[in-house]
Simulated assay, not measured.
Amino acid sequence: MLRSLAVLLSAALALSGIAACQQQKFTKNSATHTRDGALGITETNPNMPLSASFRTYPDDLRVMQNAISQRFPNVSITSISLNGPTAYVRLNAPAHTSPEEIERIRQGAAEALAFAAPRYNANVTVTAK
């Protein structure tokens, strides 16, 4: 009985050794990073300045101007300046605009800017001229 168990164990080890030595037929499906000089970091962080999807400051200003112009066509944009995470926006409303309407324009412009450029905190000033 002990002899047959030893023969069976030897056969099992021999079969596993043969199976382990066979050449495996599989393909490696790993993807490498692109050769962008940053070891693929532009693919993992799309808003870094290295990637093509990153908006520059002039692009941000254009997006902000378009957002305000589309929502308030009768309001003129005096200036937009960016300082870190804050966008300072000055708008001119028509001369006879009521204070309630000026406040509505200010809040609406802040909402439009928050939607168009969410990475900036908009500080909007509206004057009637």
Rank of each mutant, 00 (worst) to 15 (best):
T44D: 05
T42F: 00
E111Y: 13
C21R: 15
I102R: 06
N45T: 03
S53V: 03
N121V: 11
R71H: 14
N123C: 02
T78F: 15
F26W: 08
I102S: 01
V124A: 01
E101Q: 10
P94F: 11
K28E: 05
A112I: 07
T32Q: 09
R71T: 13
S98Q: 01
N121R: 14
A116V: 01
D60H: 15
Q107F: 14
S76W: 15
K25R: 08
E101I: 02
Q23D: 09
L50S: 05
G84D: 04
N83K: 13
R106A: 02
T56C: 11
V75G: 03
A31W: 04
Y57R: 14
P58T: 00
A114S: 10
Q107C: 06
S79F: 13
N83P: 12
K28A: 05
V89M: 03
T42E: 05
Y57F: 14
A95D: 07
E100Q: 08
A116T: 03
P94V: 09
I68E: 10
L50R: 04
D59T: 10
R106I: 04
L50H: 02
S98R: 04
H33K: 07
L39F: 02
G40S: 00
V124C: 06
Q107S: 12
S79N: 12
T86Y: 14
D59N: 12
N92Y: 09
R119C: 06
V89F: 02
A38P: 07
P46C: 00
S79H: 14
A112V: 10
N121A: 08
I68M: 14
N29R: 10
K28H: 10
D36H: 00
T27A: 11
N47Q: 05
I68P: 15
F115P: 10
Y120M: 05
A19F: 11
L39E: 01
Q65P: 13
